[in-house]
Amino acid sequence: MEKVKVRLTVNGNSFCLEVGAKERLLDTLREQLRLTGVKEGCSIGECGACTVILNGEAVNSCLVLTGQLDQSEVVTVEGLAQDGRLEPLQQAFIDHHAVQCGFCTPGMLMSAKALLMKDPHPGREQIKTALEGNLCRCTGYQQIIEAIESLTGPERE
């Protein structure tokens, strides 16, 4: 089968990749680039465990073919910490006990990060909307919302 050539920037690094016709962004990240922070949960866009930031927006990496992404920019959970220091959002998750089993955490972090990039001062409703596509089967939503709220400062009127 013919492969497709794709130039992709992932967590600030440029890659020139050859991908199969059915290869999802999720597969490329995990199998080719070994970025296993991206989790595969439901494979049909319901659970959000595979959420990454694509060109500035949160997307399910199980619902995108890598072949569609020439010249795109991707950020995964591995791209959050800089110089060995956790991103404030990650630290807030720890401080607010927003992690239980941890499987949904990378996806939760990326949805939250995409929200804060777009709007640094979201209200509780905006936070809930940003997370509506991320399931946590330990049901620790409250702590996750509180972790994000701790970074947002006073709500914008």
Binding site: A21, K22, S43, I44, C62, L63, V64, L65, Q68, D70
Partner: peptide, 29 residues
């Protein structure tokens, strides 16, 4: 293929809706 939010679900579930196609044409860009 555009946003893929239906089509990639069909692909994951090996849906009959994709049976017999020769090309998937990505128009998302």
């Amino acid at each position: 293929l555009a946003g893929g939010t239906d089509l990639l679900v069909d692909l994951a579930q090996k849906s009959h809706r994709l049976a017999g196609i020769d090309y998937l044409l990505d128009i998302s860009q």
